[in-house]
């Protein structure tokens, strides 16, 4: 009898609080969430709703205060710093609002950065893999440019290439269009959507913009640290305007 495949991510009653000396500031309450492989998910919510904190926990950048966090069915609570780093190097990757590219460094070197910390990809494959990722976001001709020579949209596409280069299980994009004009924002969202549609990547998008969130198949609304709604009602909106509400 075929066994049911474990979800990529599962949280059970996950809570997070920040502690400042003796003062506890709870941020997330009883988050129960399941993300299947291949999903394109948006986490929405107003500022301070806890969406970034949730993304950091799901992306192994931070630990929950209580509750369970399972990755491919395995509990992650007992993982030490080095094990978390190894998961970040191999399984997950990030696209940040502020791009976070290394200044005065070429596009190629920026995209190769995660490969320096990858435990199994040999050094001899780095350039080839990085160039492939750069080609995926359409920046092959800019590979030798310094990142500060590129437009904002191009820089975010470099960040997407960097997120792709290790072929992770899941890509987290934290307000990826937040620092971009609308045209560049559309290009970046197209690039992310393409990763999902054409390559089947699992993508978690954190945003407070309704229009951006609608690119995803599933939208989770966070409010005051709790899941207010989890909906798959939306048919994705394509940036060319052909998508529409179901």
């Amino acid at each position: 009898m075929p066994s049911k495949k474990a979800p990529l991510i599962e949280t059970i009653d996950l809570c997070k609080s920040y502690f400042n000396e003796e003062l506890e500031t709870p941020v997330l309450f009883d988050i129960n969430l399941t993300i299947q492989e291949g999903e394109f998910l948006s986490i929405m919510g107003p500022s301070g709703s806890g969406k970034s904190t949730l993304m950091h926990i799901l992306g192994f950048l931070d630990n929950p205060t209580s509750g369970k966090f399972l990755f491919r069915g395995d509990r992650t609570k007992s993982l030490n710093d080095d094990e978390l780093a190894r998961i970040r190097a191999t399984r997950v990757s990030f696209v940040f609002q502020a791009f976070n590219l290394l200044p005065r460094t070429s596009v190629l070197d920026n995209v190769m950065l995660p490969l320096l910390y990858h435990p199994t990809i040999p050094a001899s494959e780095r350039v080839e893999r990085a160039m492939h990722a750069i080609a995926t976001v359409g920046l092959t001709e800019r590979a030798t440019y310094f990142t500060n020579q590129l437009s904002g949209g191009q820089q975010q596409r470099v960040a997407i290439a960097r997120a792709l280069v290790t072929e992770p299980d899941i890509i987290f994009a934290d307000e990826p269009t937040g620092n971009l004009d609308s045209t560049s924002g559309i290009q970046v969202m197209d690039a992310l959507q393409q990763l999902h549609d054409d390559m089947g990547r699992t993508i978690v998008l954190v945003t407070h913009e309704e229009a951006t969130a609608r690119h995803a198949e599933r939208i989770i609304h966070l409010k005051d640290g709790r899941i207010a709604s989890d909906s798959k009602k939306f048919k994705r909106v394509r940036s060319n305007g052909k998508g529409k509400l179901k």
Binding site: D82, A85, R86, A89, L113, P114, Y117, T166
Partner: peptide, 9 residues
């Protein structure tokens, strides 16, 4: 950033 992409301590 380096830590986010997998650098250990």
């Amino acid at each position: 950033l380096r830590k986010a992409v997998g650098a250990r301590k």
